[in-house]
Design a protein around this nucleic acid. Structure first.
Lengths: 158, 158
DNA sequence: GGAGTAGGTTGGATTTTCCAACTAACTTGT
DNA sequence: ACAAGTTAGTTGGAAAATCCAACCTACTCC
């Protein structure tokens, strides 16, 4: 079977692994969470995430270089910048939401934590479905497709 | 405003942060990807993820202790175990799928990577919507809810 | 003029991760 | 019988990432 029998093929290069190279480093997703919640300044992102300032600086630079966030100047003297999500960063939301939903369903401990909800007011209960056929995604519906190279193609902004 | 003005409140304890404590460590999500794809043995998970064997051992133990995976014996002499997703682990799929979809939309480089698709055959284009109102989730629809403690409540298995 | 705010940078300690080699307990081939 | 291979780890030491507190710059406010 091709999934398990990859012999000497080396690590599986897939889009999950690629995404984790950018979003999977420590503090990156929590920084994006803050921006998604409307927190845009360095000091507050540092406080609200708990990341040390040097690491946070490094993460923000990486996210910026990958086009996930951008620095927006809000003061000229002294020069001060805010961090904002780009179109790419805004689309990280489904990952955060799926994570929050999984965690609130399965994590059991006594520490009180902030929950999330949909803007309609309901408790967080997201459903992931295929845009094509409308059917819900589950473990079994995750299938490997062909190898693709994304070098030249420009993502369509809608 | 309450989101940005948390003063000395310390790091935001939320379900995203809680989830990342388990799933956010290096290699954890890639190991779960392998199990989601039907790969259940130590050597092959190590090969397919690229994780070093000692770290992988440590991750699998953590995931097991958190109830995300379980060890299933498949040989008695010598004692050998396979790693399988629990109900909790199976529900990590939406996170992996959202990550794969984000990555294939926004990551641009030349390395050819395995893509994913829905089992209906269509390219990966997942839509996350609210189970209650049916409306799609976006950045703006991620809202903080009340503080909750999950100590005693038992998640409903359906 | 001193304190406070904002966004960093620096040096050094600590923690994680990496890597190759090694072990243990078998099974298979000759 | 004996060597080689398979599977699931463990070990020790080097390398890399992270943490932390202190420091710096350039302002503003009192």
């Amino acid at each position: 079977m091709e999934l398990t029998d990859r012999a000497d093929a080396g690590p599986r290069a897939c889009f999950i692994a690629a995404g984790l190279e950018v979003l999977g480093e420590r503090w990156a997703l929590l920084a994006l969470r803050e921006m998604s919640l409307g927190v845009h300044r360095f000091d507050q992102i540092a406080r609200n995430t708990g990341a040390s300032r040097d690491i946070l600086t490094s993460r923000l630079r990486t996210l910026e270089s990958q086009g996930v966030i951008e620095r927006v100047q809000y003061s000229e003297r002294p020069p001060r910048h805010e961090y904002h999500l780009t179109a790419s960063g805004a689309e990280v939301a489904p990952i955060l939401i799926s994570l929050a939903a999984w965690s609130s369903t399965w994590m059991r401990d006594e520490t009180p934590r902030a929950s999330y909800r949909h803007s309609c007011g309901a408790d967080l209960k997201p459903v992931l479905s295929c845009a094509e056929c409308g059917e819900e995604f589950g473990v079994g519906s995750l299938m490997l497709g062909p190898l693709v190279s994304t070098s030249s193609a420009i993502p369509v902004e809608e």
